[in-house]
């Protein structure tokens, strides 16, 4: 009987939202397979307190690797602890969130175990007792279904695709001995952490993106107001054109050479909809396009559209949504 393992992404003791999604997806699979779902937490001494939440999302067993050197994420250290933990167990699959951390870490673990990996998975099924995954390729133009011939299969799961579901697990806690050669000469070190005030566009449930049709970077206050009206789980996005002209930071760019996102609600404002942009947002659940040009390709992928001047439409839209939320 081989179980499933989920890597728990946490920063400063906070379990990331996407970890809850991965755990929920894993718990559902484990139930179908009749196996256990385990959660693996790495962090500083005392990180165990975050594990209560993990039980709420279905973890049967929680493995804690506590060590002062694990207080910040360093790929080399984390991979080495995780590889040992996986080798000590008997796992069919190991799941990671497909975040900056997960995408840095999972390939190192895969190489350490000499196994196989699928990135940015959007669906996992049990077919004839084996796992089959679906993942977008060619910038989302095609969905590929794949199975594995090596185990444990390493899977990174795209954020915002699987709903987090409360599902109480046994949550039995196991401590892992951490004994590693952490500092061999000059090693990797995080020496600075710059800004982390806003929600990242890849983590947001609603995204308000602006393109060249916004005409001037000063007009972004209209997009910010709409974002604020949509609540704390909303973020700003941007097209490549406005990032390249320096109106917006690259961290906000949606599309090829930027971020690939899957929010519930996506507003494309003044964005024409080049292939490069579509590659980053076509898996959004609901797409709204606001554009002056009725022939803009963005209308070809949107669910709802308004033709018109964004500078006039945005304030009114923000006002109505704010009123709606105030009324609740």
């Amino acid at each position: 009987m081989s179980n499933l393992l989920v890597f728990v992404e946490q920063r400063e003791g906070c379990v990331s939202a996407v970890t809850k999604e991965v755990l929920s997806a894993g718990a559902a699979l484990a139930k179908e397979l009749g196996v256990e779902i385990h959660a693996l937490v790495l962090g500083d001494k005392g990180i165990g307190s975050s594990s209560i939440e993990l039980t709420d999302y279905g973890a049967d067993q929680i493995f804690l690797a506590e060590h002062p050197e694990l207080n910040v994420y360093l790929g080399e250290n984390f991979a080495s602890v995780i590889v040992s933990a996986i080798e000590a167990g008997n796992y069919r699959a190991v799941m990671f969130p497909a975040t900056a951390m997960g995408k840095d870490l999972a390939p190192r673990v895969t190489a350490g175990l000499d196994t196989v990996m699928a990135t940015d998975v959007t669906q996992v099924e049990v077919i004839e007792g084996g796992l089959e995954i679906t993942r977008p390729i060619f910038g989302g133009k095609v969905l590929a279904k794949m199975k594995f011939t090596a185990f444990p299969a390493v899977i990174s799961v795209r954020p915002n695709v699987f709903p987090p579901e409360k599902n109480s697990g046994a949550g039995h806690i196991n401590k892992i001995e951490v004994s590693l050669p952490f500092t061999e000469g000059l090693s990797v070190e995080i020496i600075e952490n710059l800004g982390r005030q806003n929600l990242d566009v890849s983590e947001a449930k609603s995204v308000v993106s602006g393109g060249r049709g916004m005409k001037d970077p000063d007009n972004w206050k209209l997009l910010e107001e709409l974002r604020d009206a949509l609540g704390p789980e909303a973020a700003l996005g941007a097209s490549r054109a406005v990032v390249d002209t320096g109106w917006r930071p690259h961290g906000e760019q949606v599309g090829q050479t930027g971020k690939t996102i899957a929010p519930k609600l996506y507003f494309a404002v003044g964005i024409s909809g080049a292939v490069q942009h579509l590659a980053g947002m076509r898996t959004a659940q609901t797409i709204v396009a606001i554009n002056k040009d009725a022939d803009a390709p963005i209308f070809g992928v949107a669910d709802y559209g308004i033709v018109g001047d964004a500078m006039e439409i945005l304030p009114r839209l923000t006002e109505i949504i704010s009123e709606l939320n105030a009324g609740e």
């Binding site: 975040t99 900056a100 951390m101 000469g185 000059l186 090693s187 990797v188 070190e189 995080i190 020496i191 600075e192 952490n193 710059l194 800004g195 982390r196 005030q197 806003n198 929600l199 990242d200 566009v201 890849s202 983590e203 690259h250 961290g251």
Partner: peptide, 14 residues
């Protein structure tokens, strides 16, 4: 400079 979710980490490696 490594891009993470809404931030940048500065990492030194040998």
């Amino acid at each position: 400079q490594r891009q993470i979710e809404n931030g940048t980490e500065v990492i030194e490696l040998a």
